[in-house]
């Protein structure tokens, strides 16, 4: 079982890394057995994330999300069906959705894969301790180590073009240009 916190050092996009780091220090308190759950950071979608996913049977990806849901909402997306993923995104913006669709096409995804995240509001503001803790608790619930988190949204609203908006990570790969 693998938990992958996706993010970067910038703003709300730190969320995935913060959750991974927090959980890494809490595994004992959460009752996790050593070796049962591997917790990793991921800094880039595409090849790096697919490589991290390849070796696990079950994975939970934790990320800052931008789906059109209420800002601050806790989101859970279970990947069961393909579709709804906008293709043709650029490499710079090769996001989580496209990466997972590519992994599905190549047959390299774990059989069970879930995305947990929080809908971003101000993308430039770092996540709060409360948001990190809520997501950690949700992750424990997801993995069967705690109580279910009330208020979890399991089906984000469609995006502006009517697609069942999967998820667009916030600032997944910032490219500042001259």
């Amino acid at each position: 079982m693998k938990v992958i916190g996706v993010g970067s050092p910038h703003g709300f996009d730190r969320l995935g890394w913060e959750v991974a780091d927090t959980l890494r220090n809490r595994t004992t308190a959460a009752g996790w057995r050593p070796g049962e759950v591997s917790i990793e950071r991921c800094e880039r979608f595409g090849a790096p994330l697919l490589a991290q996913l390849r070796t696990s049977k079950r994975a939970v990806i934790v990320d800052a999300l931008k789906t059109g849901a209420r800002p601050g909402a806790l989101l859970r997306i279970a990947l069961t069906e393909p579709g709804g993923v906008p293709c043709g995104l650029s490499s710079h913006g090769l996001g989580l959705a496209t990466t997972l669709e590519l992994g599905r096409a190549l047959g390299t995804l774990p059989p069970v894969i879930t995305v947990l995240g929080i809908e971003a509001d101000d993308e430039t503001a770092a996540p709060t301790a409360d948001q990190v803790n809520r997501l950690c608790q949700a992750l424990c619930d997801e993995l069967g180590y705690g109580q279910h988190q009330p208020g979890m949204v399991s089906c984000p609203e469609p995006d502006s073009e009517g697609r069942p908006s999967l998820y667009h990570s916030v600032a997944c790969d910032r490219n500042d240009h001259r």
Binding site: A47, C87, G88, E101, A105, L106, G107, T108
Partner: peptide, 22 residues
């Protein structure tokens, strides 16, 4: 139209490309 479509036609080559990129 995309690498996702290419992956259906040339999966081994795309996997090889991702290995090299990584």
């Amino acid at each position: 139209g995309s690498v996702i479509e290419l992956a259906a036609k040339q999966p081994d080559e795309v996997r090889r490309g991702l290995r090299l990129q990584e």
